[in-house]
Amino acid sequence: MSGRAENMIQLIDVSKEYKMADSCRVALQHINLTISEGEYIGILGLNQSGKSTLARLLNGLLKPTTGQVLINGMATDSPQEIRQIRQLLGMVFQNPDNQLICPVVEEEIAFGPENLGLPPEEVNKRVDWALELVGMQEMRYHAPHLLSGGQKQKVALASVLAMQPRYLVLDEPTSMLDPLSRREILEHLCRINQENHITIILISHHPEDLLDAKRLILLHEGSIYMQGTPKEVFKDMEKLKAIGLKRPGLYQLIQQVEEEGYRIDDNIKTIPQLVEMICRI
């Protein structure tokens, strides 16, 4: 391997097996993947495809059985570097109730920065910044457990952002949310990626969640099955069908129209946008 690669995540021939009493299950096999700082990555796969294992390998909650996971050149199986890795890479999980611990929103968000040993002024600044980023300033003094599901997930997101990570890994962060809260979270992720240049790695089994990704990685039975822009991946209907995935209706429409010889702009992300664009042709 050539030196330490800064500013990127590298998975080098990573496999992960879970050993049980009398059997062994392979969750991931021979994954090679490089994610550069600033990217917006979507990871798609059905249950048991290895998505959550991948997420937990990235911040060292799990160690690879073989191969290496490097975050800015630091290996996740090195005890000396794990602290620094977890400062670089923040995680948001499916159920916000599992990661909220403080009685007041403000304390919840200050918890991480305080543990970094930052001075109170800096902690305060970060709490302000993180609350503003997710649009929750007015909830600063509320109790997290009395908030709605969508609001809780925003608090969980803010508390991770307050650590100012370079990489943000989100494992099914919208699956407990109603459609409105879901769209809000996805919009925040886009902004955080574009304006704050934080790398987003968003994991979901719903293709619709991942349309903002610049690169979509499709996992199937522990291997990378397909990879490309959402448009490229969702073009190949047969290949998706073979593993039981349906593509978003938007991409069926785009393909139908493009087969008639009209070119649809890559920026189109919703059906109303598509209809509007077509009405203007």
Binding site: P179, I271, C279
Partner: peptide, 19 residues
């Protein structure tokens, strides 16, 4: 309208544009 099934989103978007 963004919560509708995909084909109905098309129908609604067309209606909303007076098509």
């Amino acid at each position: 309208h963004l919560e509708l099934p995909d084909y109905l989103q098309v129908v609604y978007a067309l209606k909303a544009r007076g098509k």
